[in-house]
Structures are given as C-alpha cells and as structure tokens.
C-alpha cells in the first residue's frame, strides 16, 4: 500500500469470487503463472494448494515453537537447579542438590507452555492480527468468505496491477463476480 498520495480513487485490489475450492486453486495457479505476486486467497477453511500457489510452501510456526520450547525448557531446568541447589540450597529427603529426575516434570511443563505461547503469539504477530478492520470488509460479498465462497484478491501494489487488464484477466477465470476493493 505504498501508492503515491495523489492517486485517486485509492484501490486496495480486485476481488474475484468463486464457488468452489478447486476453482480458487485453479485461479490462483493461473494468476501466479501470469506473473502476479501480490495477491492472496480467502476461504472458509484451509486450502493448502492456494498457499502453495501463492509461493508460501512452509510456515514459520514450527521454527518459532521449537526455539520457544527450547528456551522454556532450558530456563526451567536451570532455574530449578539454581534456586534449590545454589541460591538457597535445600536438602529434602537427602536428595542430591542436582536431582535431575525430580526436575524433569517442571522442565517439561515449561517447555510445553513456552512452545505453545510462542506459537500463538507468533501466529498473531505474523498475520498482523488483531486487525478488526480491513479494506476487504468493504466488499459485501466478502462476508461469504466465512460461509461458502472462495475469493482471490489481486492487490493494487502488484507491479503488474492495472484496473482494466487485471480485471479482464480475472474475468477469463470465470468467477461469480469481480469487485473493486476500495482502500
């Protein structure tokens, strides 16, 4: 959305509506083949092939959760040993200061906790959520993206974007409708 200020009217992109997931997959693949890069698909449930066609084959969530979990587990284990073994040595039942079998449960729980929370925070941060308003919500049909329709939006920031030619191209994909999305 880095268009120049004097460009009017401001357009977010063109939104094509499809009736089935397969058509959306096909449309996304065609648009990608045509060279469009700034676009996104919208569907009521995940359609993995659309993300593949958009050139997003693998998400970052796995790496984030792995690192988060590793940090949590390390912190948990070191914390227990430091607090009960070094900072305030506690002798309970004659157990050694370094009682690793008894430090395992909390280490595990903190691993799960930090991995999960970093995954959730990571998801929202990467997706830019919460974002209660979005240009797409200006299009009445788009309410059906959570119901039974599948949408492809070619964004105005795409280098190839042109209201007329892009629209003509979208029409060749035989959508149910094509709408201009106001910014």
């Amino acid at each position: 959305m880095t268009s120049t200020l004097d460009e009017t009217p401001k357009v977010y992109g063109l939104l094509a509506e499809f009736g089935t997931a397969d058509e959306l997959v096909h449309a996304t693949q065609s648009a990608a083949a045509k060279g469009f890069s700034r676009m996104d698909g919208y569907s009521p449930y995940p359609v993995g092939e659309v993300a593949d066609a958009l050139g997003f084959p693998r998400s970052e969530i796995g790496a984030i959760m792995f690192i988060g979990g590793l940090c949590g587990a390390t912190f948990g284990f070191v914390m227990q040993y430091y607090l009960n073994g070094i900072d305030y040595p506690l002798n309970v039942g004659g157990k050694p200061m370094f009682s690793w079998p008894q430090f395992a449960p909390i280490t595990w729980e903190l691993l799960v906790l930090t991995a999960s929370l970093s995954g959730v925070i990571g998801l929202f941060a990467l997706c830019g959520l919460p974002q209660p308003n979005h240009p797409l919500f200006n299009v009445p049909q788009f309410a059906r993206a959570t119901r039974d329709r599948f949408f492809l939006c070619v964004e105005a920031t795409d280098p190839q974007f042109d209201l007329t030619t892009t629209r003509d191209f979208l029409d060749t994909l035989k959508p149910l409708s094509v709408a201009e999305v106001p910014e």
Binding site: S43, P46, S116
Partner: peptide
Amino acid sequence: MGWRGSAIHWRRYEKLYLLLAGLGTPLVFS
C-alpha cells in the same frame, strides 16, 4: 481478531494447530 481466512494465515494456523495437538498429547499424559 479480524480473521479473514487468508490462505497465508490458514497455512500458519494449521501448522500451529497441529503442533499444539502434538504438544497437547504428551501434555495430557504428563
């Protein structure tokens, strides 16, 4: 949270969902 069903978001979402399930399984045992 303004969820709009973007394919990119769904991809991340599914991975998170699977990994949370993968962690939840040993968690419930533990």
